[in-house]
Amino acid sequence: MINYRGIRSIYAFEMGRTLRTIGQSIASPVISTVLYFIVFGSAMGSRIQTMDGVPYGAFIVPGLIMLTVLGQSVSNASFGIYFPRFTGTIYEILSAPLSFIEIVLGYVGAAASKSIIIGAIVLTTAGFFVPLHIAHPLWMIFFLIMTSVTFSLMGFIIGIWADGFEKLQLIPLLIITPLTFLGGSFYSVKMLPPFWYQISLINPVVYLISGFRWSFYEQGDVSLMTSVTMIAVFTALSLVIIAHIFKTGYRLRK
């Protein structure tokens, strides 16, 4: 027996929260994308010829989408579960006939949906600056969805772990942002000296951006299969942590 209506209620509630703040939800990613394009695409890009045979302005599109999607996934999902814990309304979720998996589906599903929508908006915005070319749309969608889901799962974990608003900001600020910037959003990690190239291969975001960029231009820092394998590993890892939270009731059920 699965409580579909319960999952749908959480999902609709979370999406409703997004709709109430639709202006901020869309304005902020659109504005930052425009700024990145002005600074990197136009100002600096004019001095850079091509990157892996792709014009620089177009080259940064997949990276920019990933940058936004990762950040949005983590912040939406972590806030979505942290806020009811903070206000106390979580009591209702915990006393409802919902399994932990159903709770995760509701919250993570909504956070990932929002990220995917924002990813699409950023992609459209980018289309105003550079001609878009997507070689493998299905792979593009696959990477977009997998990234949104995986990082929403991570966000959910952070939202459960955090016991204050500071901690809620800490992981995105200290880990996610550096990983995205150093993950080849604006450059190819192959440009790095061999030592730093090896180091950057520890960075999970490299594989996401590489795979995503491949789906656009058939150019990646690592092979497609490596990217797919790595994203599967991250998803699995997040699911293992989630399963552990479920078993122990960590920070949810005292």
């Binding site: 409580n3 319960g6 749908r8 209620s9 979720i93 409802a96 006939p97």
Partner: peptide, 9 residues
């Protein structure tokens, strides 16, 4: 919303 959480139509 509360009714939905409990799986009731």
């Amino acid at each position: 919303f509360s009714r939905g959480l409990f799986g009731k139509p």
